[in-house]
Amino acid sequence: MNQLVESVVHEHVHRDDVGAKIGMWLFLFTELILFGGMFLAYAVYRYQYGDFFALASKKLDVFFGLINTLILLTSSLTMAMSITAIRRESKKLSMLFLALTIFFALLFMVNKYFEWSAKFSSGIFPGSTELLNQPKGIIIYFGLYFVMTGLHALHVLIGMVILLVMFFYLKSDVINSDYYIMLENSGLYWHLVDIIWIFLFPLFYLIH
């Protein structure tokens, strides 16, 4: 009886993978506008305080930025491969790629911790007396730096949690070779976080 009910219910499960994907993209557009507003603020202030921005950006360590860029790019690779793996019905490989993605996300945060610690210990953090004694352009640059990379780091943290949930869904076969839209949508989110960083890296670390 129970089995019968279950099979009947199963056949009537409403599923709309395309709809789910459209929903995810709509959410990503709100993210784009959220960060877009900040990029707009950056552009206007850079236009007004170009010389100070050039001066301040030299205080950032390109090495940290570069390593984190490579880490995120690689995490995007393993994320994409995880989806290919589950669609080819290799669950173990998919879990491995996803675990690697989460590991790279963690590595990114560890790197960020060391980078920010170094900044804090040299007296550069929002509202520090050292920073407030600087010209206005430098204060604005570091304000944007901490808010934008901070909000991005928050997205990485949230991404880690989402990917961790996906990992257990994979493990318990909730996500499988037929039903993988959740993994795809999580991947879309993860790649967006990567794209944001692709722009943050040159704007803050490279352009002097």
Partner: peptide, 16 residues
């Protein structure tokens, strides 16, 4: 810098 970043973003969007 923005040109190269846009190209990278495009690759991520199209393929990944």
């Amino acid at each position: 810098a923005l040109g190269i970043a846009s190209l990278k973003a495009l690759l991520v969007l199209l393929v990944f």
